[in-house]
Design a protein around this nucleic acid. Structure first.
Length: 702
DNA sequence: ATCGTCATTTGT
DNA sequence: CAAATGACGATC
């Protein structure tokens, strides 16, 4: 509906006639055209009813993080529905926006501008989604439009005009009897079926078909007519979960949302959800916002996986967003996994969630036998095994598994983890002169001087290394990755096929035949019939990381791998390369992630670390960080740690990036979030050019 | 980006 | 002293 452009004679305000300056004539012309456009708008008629639109404008400035009222013209009355995408003139420029609500009155003192056009009448920002996104923004001290960008995929016109997909009928109630293996399991399923909130933290038993269990929970909710949102860390997990859900509920009832679908398909599936055509959404991270109608269940699987933290501002975490949703929609949160995070432990200890753990007898029947191997192990006598530095118990366990016709899982740390050292000349691995342990870079500095390499076993630093083989004094870093381990193991088990699964190529599954499956943590393929043994090598590389979560993360990776091994009764064995005295190792041996999480949480309480306290990191140039810290109105318990230098430090001891941490007691988390919002608003208003990154509840702390 | 507001500079 | 210019802040 293009309006005819009428250029009329218009009342001119004091325009000096016959100005001699050449430029002013051009200026006058522009002014004339602009005001003609303004007049055209001025002639528009407002819609008869609810002509005021509360609009979210898509401008990422914190001090503009509120709605602005616009007038809906008569000709857009029908198109301008609540939740639709629009274009408005905001401070002179055309910007995208959403209609949050329509009303008859406005608080705004001045004149309201008209909405320029309706991009599409599809109501994508439903009231429930708007409330959720506002709550997420508030929780993280971020802006609504930042969260909307994560929650609503880009529009694709063609997908919108396609005929809507059929609404699937509610599936029948599933058989949930497999949940009797768990304490609180049947009660949890009953609560779902009765539409009672029953937040829970679930520790899956080893070997558990967890996609099937989650599908059962979703189906139990779907049978009541309510919806479910299930979020897993990665693509492989999603494939398994989607299959299980389709099997139980049919393909029409389930939609899988995943990054990397392409804009059309992504928007098509998301539209099916917002239009209420599907009850169950499975997906990765971004699916945490899926606007399912009347949701009754929110699931996060393996909440310790760092993929659950969105890397875009305001950096929301799947577990926390789903907690907000469960609370707002009177639904249930289920946080499941083989291990347990300190955050999940806090949910239990605070009474917010109940634990669902395996019955003792079930655990005994399903867990593999776990054997720790410390550093003073017996190297296998076999010559090839000796070359691979394989402990004799590990060699034995692997041999037995292969003899039973089952594959062996070998977990090795990812490339780029703690590097070992080798001779810079002949590449012979560098060993400690005292105990022959591996030398490694210690990391960090002592009063500005980088620490010398040290022994990973006895800790003695080696300031003047000399290669035992060639006499060179040069050192180089090496990483014994999956590939090298695979080669060495292949020689130790001649004739056995070796498969690798890691960064470059991740296998989804391997057949239940003798094979060595070498993989990095998180890339373990599912084995048909389970693995006969798992060798968790180089535990020190996982445990030795400078990270608050190193222990928790190590246990999570070990348990996820060990859960794929056959029960001890069927000969399943796990050999873990770490000292038996470590609490992480104890937790694996006893298969007690709850105990470890409780220990971990108690320790963090003592040290004042998350989740006992809430923290925020502020990262940027030293000046910018100092300015924010100075401006930040911290609550009473507020405390600043640092700032510390990041990246390269020059010879004057300066770095161009710094990071400070602030922490408050949990109860003042809201105050911290609003202080961050206020400080960001002042920064944006001042148009500070230096970029800064403020993150609430960051994962990496040390 | 662009508008209004306010203070400062410029032109009689 | 009024008009012109510039800096600034809000932005419906």
């Amino acid at each position: 509906m293009p309006e005819p452009v009428r250029v009329q004679s218009e009342p001119r305000r004091s325009q000096v006639p016959g100005s001699k300056v050449p430029g002013s004539q051009v200026k006058a012309k522009i002014k004339k055209a602009k005001s003609a456009a303004a007049e055209r708008r001025g002639q528009q008629q407002a819609a008869a009813e609810n002509s005021v639109a509360r609009v979210v404008v898509d401008i990422p400035l914190t001090h503009l993080d509120r709605t602005f009222d616009y007038r809906i013209p008569e000709n857009l009355d029908e198109a301008a529905v609540v939740g639709c995408r629009i274009r408005v003139r905001f401070a002179g420029q055309l910007v995208d926006g959403y209609i949050l609500e329509r009303a008859n009155t406005t608080e705004h003192q001045g004149k309201l501008a008209f909405i320029e056009r309706v991009t599409s009448s599809e109501p994508v920002l439903t009231p429930a989604l708007a409330t959720l996104c506002r709550a997420v923004a508030d929780r993280y001290g971020g802006t609504l439009v930042d969260v909307l960008r994560l929650a609503i995929p880009p529009r694709h016109g063609k997908a919108e005009s396609e005929p809507p997909r059929d609404v699937a009928a509610a599936p029948p109630a599933p058989d949930t009897s497999a949940w009797v293996r768990y304490q609180n399991g049947p009660a949890f399923l009953e609560a779902l079926a009765a539409e009672r909130p029953a937040n829970a933290v679930w520790q899956a038993l080893p070997g558990e078909d967890w996609p099937r269990r989650l599908a059962e929970a979703a189906a139990a909710v779907a049978a009541t007519g309510r919806g479910a949102v299930l979020v897993v860390p990665d693509h492989r997990d999603l494939t398994r979960l989607h299959e299980a859900c389709v099997e139980l509920m049919g393909a029409e009832a389930v939609v899988s949302l995943i990054a990397g679908l392409g804009p059309a398909e992504r928007y098509r599936r998301w539209l099916a959800v917002v239009r209420g055509a599907v009850q169950v959404v499975v997906g990765t991270r971004a699916a945490m916002f899926a606007p399912v109608a009347d949701p009754g269940l929110f699931v996060v699987w393996d909440d310790g996986d760092d993929l659950h933290l969105d890397p875009h501002a305001p950096y929301p975490h799947v577990r926390d967003v789903l907690m907000l949703r469960a609370h707002a929609d009177k639904g249930t949160l289920l946080a499941g996994g083989f291990a347990r995070t300190a955050e999940a432990q806090l949910l239990i200890e605070s009474g917010w969630a109940r634990p669902i753990v395996g019955e003792r007898a079930e655990l005994r029947a399903s867990a593999p036998r776990v054997t720790p191997v410390g550093e003073d192990f017996d190297v296998a006598r076999d010559e090839a095994a000796k070359a691979a530095r394989l402990p004799s118990v590990a060699f034995e366990a692997a041999r037995q598994s292969l003899a039973n016709g089952a594959p062996v899982l070998v977990q090795v740390p990812r490339r780029g983890y703690v590097p070992g050292l080798a001779c810079g000349n002949c590449r012979t691995p560098a060993h400690c002169r005292r105990c022959a342990g591996p030398l490694a870079l210690a990391g960090g500095t002592d009063e500005g001087v980088p620490r010398p390499p040290g022994c990973r076993w006895c800790g003695v630093p080696d300031t003047n290394f000399r290669c035992a083989a060639c006499g060179s004094v040069r050192l180089r870093a090496v990483i014994v990755g999956a590939k090298r381990t695979a080669e060495e193991l292949g020689r130790a088990f001649p004739g056995v096929p070796v498969r690798t699964s890691g960064a470059t190529e991740v296998l989804a599954s391997v057949p239940g035949k003798p094979a060595l499956v070498v993989c990095t943590p998180g890339a373990e393929p599912v084995a048909v019939g389970g693995y006969g043994a798992a060798l968790l090598l180089d535990g020190w590389a996982l445990l030795g990381r400078q990270d608050l979560r190193a222990g928790e993360e190590t246990l999570r990776r070990w348990m996820t791998a060990a859960a794929m091994v056959r029960p001890a009764g069927a000969g399943g064995r796990v050999i873990v390369g770490a000292e038996a005295g470590l609490s992480v190792v104890q937790a694996l041996v006893r298969w007690d992630p709850g105990w470890h999480a409780a220990t971990e949480l108690a320790e963090r309480n003592e040290l004042g670390f998350p989740p006992a306290m809430r923290m925020a990191s502020i990262e940027g140039t030293p000046e910018a960080v100092a300015a924010v810290l100075n401006d930040l109105a911290l609550p009473d318990s507020g405390e600043v740690l640092g700032p510390v230098q990041l990246g390269e430090v020059d010879e004057d001891g300066r770095s161009d990036r710094e990071r400070a941490l602030v922490r408050v007691v949990r109860g003042e988390g809201k105050a911290l979030a609003s202080a961050i919002h206020a400080a960001s608003a002042r920064r944006d208003m001042r148009k500070e050019p230096e970029p800064i990154r403020i993150q609430l509840d960051p994962l990496d702390l040390i």
